[in-house]
Amino acid sequence: MADRRALFLTAPGWIWLTVFFLLPCGVLFAYAFGTTSYTAVNFGTSLKNFGDVLTTPTLQTVVLRSLTTGLAVATLTVLLAFPLAYAITLGPFARHATPILLLVVVSLFSAFIVRIYAWRTILGSSGVVNTFLMQIGLTTEPLDELLYSRFAVVLTLTSVLIPVAVLPLTAALSGVPRSLIEAARNMGTTAPQAFRRVTLPLASGGIGSAFALTFVVGAGDFITPQLVGGPSSQMAGSAISSRFGISFDWPQGAAIAFTLVAGMVAVLVALRLLMRAAGMRDRP
């Protein structure tokens, strides 16, 4: 009876999930085994598209580039967002957490594309950074490496995603009881030891969520590489987009997408195992 009631109460959730996520993803997955001509896409059972993704050097490159870019973005984002989240929960700015968090959220209201173009203004050949470096005599001409490079992609995505990471980190750190930290200190641990053995494990769920959120967005993005990445920084999203929008090769586009998803899952599982091995569990 309780099971039926739970099923009924959660029905809106799983119906929504089925109709708007599982079903479309299932159709997309089915396409990955199909074939195409320029005018028609047919379902099938061939593994050729996955084979092509795994054996074509350019596709291997963009999938790997996506995963490594996502890893770099997620790692940097979590490392930069964590101190802020800590400061407004357990740290010195805890009393001002609400206005600071509001400012963080407000930054999410600005359009993604606007923030990308802002970085172009900052990093461009006549941008703020290059102008400053030349004015102080550190460089004599603009540094080409700043913009239209993989560095620019990672920097832009990191800056865009820090507010996204702050939210789960703040939620996780808010749940760490100060009394446990104080108990650890009373038992003779140093502040860094208490942080490593109490705070970090209890916040590991939020750290994992923040990493997963930013990793998936970073690895799957294709707008940022197009606008600030330059010709050698294109990622899998670009290959997927052109197969659906231009070359009408939905089956291969779907195969690239699911290969990327499989890569993302593998990275996240590895991360979870690493965190466990490091003793970062949010419950005993």
Binding site: T58, T61, S238, S247
Partner: peptide
């Protein structure tokens, strides 16, 4: 046409 779009992909993504 598929060859042409694949070729551009090869140039663009490589």
């Amino acid at each position: 046409r598929r060859d042409w779009s694949d070729a551009w992909e090869q140039v663009k993504l490589g």
